[in-house]
Amino acid sequence: MNKFTISGSPHIKSDESTKKIMYGVVFAMVPAMLVSIYFFGFQAIRVLVLASIASLFFEWVIQKYLIKGPVTIDDGSALVTAILLAFNVPSNLPSWMIIIGALIAIGMAKMSFGGLGRNIFNPALVARVFLLISFPVQMTSWPKPEGFSIGLSDATTGATPLGIVKEGLGAGKTMSQLKPEIPTYIQDLMGQMGGSMGEVSAIALILGGLYMLWKKIITWHIPVAMLGTVVVFTSILWGIDSEHFADPVFHLLTGGMLLGAIFMATDMVSSPMTHGGQIVFGVGIGILTVLIRVWGAYPEGVSFAILLMNAVVPLINKGFKPKRFGLKPAVSKKS
């Protein structure tokens, strides 16, 4: 084993820098957290707390008793996964399902691969897709954001804007007929729309993204490539037929688009190493997202698209590896 000379991304040199980055991400998620608590009330706190406790607990148990290695639950990575998981589910999801989600994210998607830095797929997204396919009813009953409430009783539920458009177009309606049913762009920006906890407010997410850019936790390449592709692709469709395709602004502001572009596609473990690779990665996510949103059976495609492109990352990294002088472009000179 020459694991000391070759290792996958990210090339983290010390625990301290991991910690700094991870807690930076947590801090960047605070605005979105506050918005979700404001709109979904006590339920949002329940989901956030439960996801965090469960994720940290599973990480601790697995590191201590199954892998029998050092316990690193204080490096913040499990907390980031937990908050992202909470952001990706409806606020009224039953507690036991949140715990299952945490087990899948930490136990299956992260620890089975050996822990932080080795996972191929974004843990929170694996858990989200797992939950979506396992519990389709509960994962698609979105409580309406109605301002802070202390109650734990079921809030009224409604569809997400994407769901309304997909259903409506599927039933043969046109975009102008659907206009009154979907929220205005101002509401999208603030967060007054049905959806997963963390994805509702565009402003809060953008604030977090700007903070991470400023702190150099992320670079602009992936989000800009991804969002740019979505804008171009949907503009073309919208330009061809504005009655049967939603406009680009709608696509940008609704669903998990911004949450995915800013916080999940940029996850440095499961994204490409070079900037060139990151742009290819972002463009791929953008194209797949629009394909699934417009023609697929699921109204939202961001999480599927990111997972699919996660699988392509090893190939992208190969293609964009800085070539060493004199090395033939042969493919199989490993091990």
Binding site: P136, V137, T140, E167, G170, A171, A297
Partner: peptide, 14 residues
Amino acid sequence: KDGGDVDAITAATI
């Protein structure tokens, strides 16, 4: 949802 009389299966409108 399409203005008919059939109660759809939850989450399986298609």
